[in-house]
């Protein structure tokens, strides 16, 4: 999987309430509608700033807080191609993989807002074209690669009728 785009940078501990506020998630299952409010409490105009394929880049503990799967889905439906962070909260991490949003653990200090980058998951590397540097990516557990390759957990279940990691 190869993605290319510009970066939008946030700090550490971006919680699920910031990603999509609880007050919206109960209202609807329409993810396109929810996506309009993504990151709203941190940057009210965020949704309009995104060009399809862009990346969210953050510090540590991205996605801490609730188990709401609306968080990775809203990011995905806002046309973000992947989230890059130094570390992720575990429920968010699982949810992202399960719903097919690539999440990449790497040293994000070498990425600034607006940098033009290329994320090459197969090669396990991020190429920061603006800065001319390559950043290694922490590999995913094999189970997660399998789920991501199958197109998310729902597709995995559909294909195998249950968990199949052999």
């Amino acid at each position: 999987m190869l993605f290319q785009g510009k970066t939008h940078k946030f700090g550490s501990d971006v919680n699920t309430d910031y990603i999509i506020s609880g007050k919206y998630k109960f209202k609807t299952l329409d993810m396109k509608e929810l996506a309009k409010h993504v990151m709203e409490d941190l940057d009210p105009d965020f949704y309009n700033k995104v060009t399809p394929g862009d990346f969210i880049v953050a510090g540590t503990n991205f996605g801490c807080g609730s188990s709401r799967e609306q968080a990775p889905l809203a990011i995905k439906y806002a046309n973000i191609s992947a989230v890059l962070a130094k570390s992720f909260a575990r429920i968010f991490y699982r949810n992202a993989i399960n719903t097919g949003l690539p999440v990449v653990e790497c040293d994000t200090d070498m990425i600034e807002p607006g940098d033009d980058i290329e994320v090459d998951l197969a090669a396990g590397v991020i190429r920061n074209k603006t800065k001319g540097v390559e950043i290694p990516v922490k590999p995913l557990p094999s189970v997660m690669i399998k789920i991501l390759n199958d197109g998310g957990l729902a597709a995995h279940f559909k294909q195998y009728g249950g968990f199949n990691f052999d």
Binding site: S67, R68, P72, I91, N95, N98
Partner: peptide
């Protein structure tokens, strides 16, 4: 432990879950 909706659906169907 807490999981998201897709994991929940997997658990509802299979009665199982993968864990690290």
């Amino acid at each position: 432990t807490g999981v998201g909706s897709t994991d929940l659906a997997g658990g509802l169907i299979s009665g199982k879950m993968w864990f690290k």
